[in-house]
Amino acid sequence: MKSSAGVWCAALGVIAAVAITAAAVAGGVSGHEGARAETAAKKITICLLPKKKGLPYFTTCAKGAEEAAKELGNVELIYDGPTDGSPEKAAGMVDRWALQKVDVIAVSPNDPEVLGQAMKKARQKGVHIITWDADAAPDAREFMVNQATGRDIGYALVDTMAKDIGGAEPEGEVAIITATLTAANQNEWIKHMKERLGKYPKLTLVAVKPSNEDQRLAFQVTQDLLKAHPKLKGIFGISSVAFPGAAEAVKQSGRSGAVLVTGLATPNDMKAYVHDGTVRSVVLWNTGDLGYLTVRAAAALASGTLKAGDHELDAGRLGTKKIEGDQILLGQILVFTKDNIDDFDF
């Protein structure tokens, strides 16, 4: 009797697991079915690849991208990326989409080399490739939708920190909490941050620590840094996971305002810290606009209205956007502060 009851329990458990999965699959299917149903004559399929799926930063970009796709009407938008941020998996997706003969693949490369190889191969198959958010080698793509170069970001972060610390010659120790030690984008920014720190001789960088994309670890490392370096004036949290972790550690140590935290994140995730004074400035750009512009550019490229050598792009609600060389420029980096952060909702 007992063992048969056990078997039933197990069977129920398995059925529950299968049901959950089936529901998940059904959810996944229905999400795409709608997009597939409409068959226009000149349909353009655009794939939008984020560095890591599941980050609100990219989700908000995708929202803008969907908006553009809807406006254009003849665009089928596919948004997918590795949930663990693995560049190899992302490259695998580029390979698959190229085989499916989509029209344009817009890539935000988490590793320019690994993705670059796949992008070149896809180009050889006649698929249009552009980059957005981050760039790869020039011969791997046709255009880049550029919201900010690594240099712009690095400089903006350091300048923002210097301004927040204040004074004619900002002074004090600063530290960087990065994503992982091997993160290509972050390492690029750090290089330019160090370069820019040269302009502020009294700001000294005392540590660059990894948070391994773990908010809790960013929190702990910041706690450690605050104690190990009592003269610390500023902390850069340069991944969207490290930033809130670092801010929370400063807040809980009771040193909000005395130790300033800045970094890159979507404003909604940081509003509370900006209002309580732990964070004075959040550096970013309008992510929805970035996704929107990317899809606009991709569609123009596929339909032939955008060609190499063009100097302007009609970008719908964003007006006309300038193209410098192969860089389609989104515009200014935004700095969110107490005064303006509530005006943004993304």
Partner: peptide, 16 residues
């Protein structure tokens, strides 16, 4: 007891 120490709940908690 550990997750609410942080202000943000993200999808990568507990990896590794």
């Amino acid at each position: 007891v550990a997750v609410p120490q942080q202000s943000v709940v993200e999808s990568g908690i507990g990896v590794g």
